[in-house]
């Protein structure tokens, strides 16, 4: 598959699929739907192949061949999930769900307490000021950021604590929590913008690469093709299917 002709064909295939997806920006249309369904298909096919070699063979079949018969137990439990398709046998799937949920819950509790609770509380409770005696006198350092973080964490927790009515001091504290949350959401939005623009840049770079003579100007030619296709589709939709507007 290192053949130059296949490389160029691959480039044209990529560009065609990319532009078909971008045609959604004009309107939902058949090109986009074809690309979307094709994507689901290749993803599923990829997953079947990958899971066959990485999972079925390496994780199940070979250990079974090697005498580790215990793998049959989870295999049978996994197959019990399929009983959900049969009304009378559906209850058997509960055994598998119960085992899975029990394992997940048991694994989660100590690890969550350790890393998400204790470690984070430890990082929150930091010195707000320190007093040190020096040869010249007493040195007092005030760590305002530590204080602000402590206030913020408590305020946000109070905001999400609904077992007590938010009145008086609780209401004020919860309101402070909301202000902290707004700043955090603003930072999140700013960062989300950066992320999405990065993804757009990545695709724009790829389309630019494929617009060169080396790839026989795939991008401009296919872009023109998609535009013509969209115009024709719109004409067909207006004349033959006037009541069925894709929006």
């Amino acid at each position: 598959m290192n053949d130059p002709a296949l490389t160029i064909f691959g480039a044209w295939l990529s560009v065609g699929l990319m532009l078909a997806v971008y045609s959604f920006l004009y309107d939902d249309n058949p090109f986009f739907k074809i690309a979307e369904h094709f994507y689901i298909g290749v993803s599923v096919g990829y997953l079947i192949v990958l899971s066959f070699y990485e999972y079925l063979i390496k994780k199940f079949w070979e250990p079974l061949q090697g005498g580790h018969l215990w793998v049959l137990i989870p295999a049978v439990m996994g197959l019990l999930i399929f009983t959900r398709y049969f009304t009378k046998l559906r209850w058997l799937s509960r055994w598998t769900f119960a085992a899975v949920m029990g394992w997940t819950a048991g694994v989660a509790i100590p690890r969550t307490i350790s890393q998400f609770l204790l470690a984070q509380v430890d990082a929150t409770v930091k010195p707000i000021f320190t007093v040190q005696s020096t040869p010249t006198g007493t040195d007092v350092d005030f760590f305002i950021n530590n204080l602000l973080i402590l206030i913020g964490v408590v305020a946000v927790l109070v905001h999400f604590f609904f077992s007590v009515e938010h009145r008086g001091p609780i209401r004020v504290t919860a309101r402070v929590g909301v202000l902290y949350l707004m700043v955090a959401f603003g930072a999140a939005f700013g960062s989300t913008t950066m992320a999405r623009m990065s993804l757009l840049y990545g695709r724009a770079y790829a389309l630019k690469e494929y617009s060169s003579a080396e790839y026989f100007y795939a991008t401009p030619i296919l872009l023109a093709g998609i535009i013509v296709g969209l115009v024709l589709w719109r004409q067909i939709e207006r004349r033959i299917l006037p009541t069925r507007r894709m929006s």
């Binding site: 913008t193 950066m194 840049y201 724009a204 770079y205």
Partner: peptide, 11 residues
């Protein structure tokens, strides 16, 4: 590195 200009402009 090459994407920093596009990122800045879009921001």
């Amino acid at each position: 590195l090459q994407g920093m200009n596009a990122l800045s402009a879009s921001h």
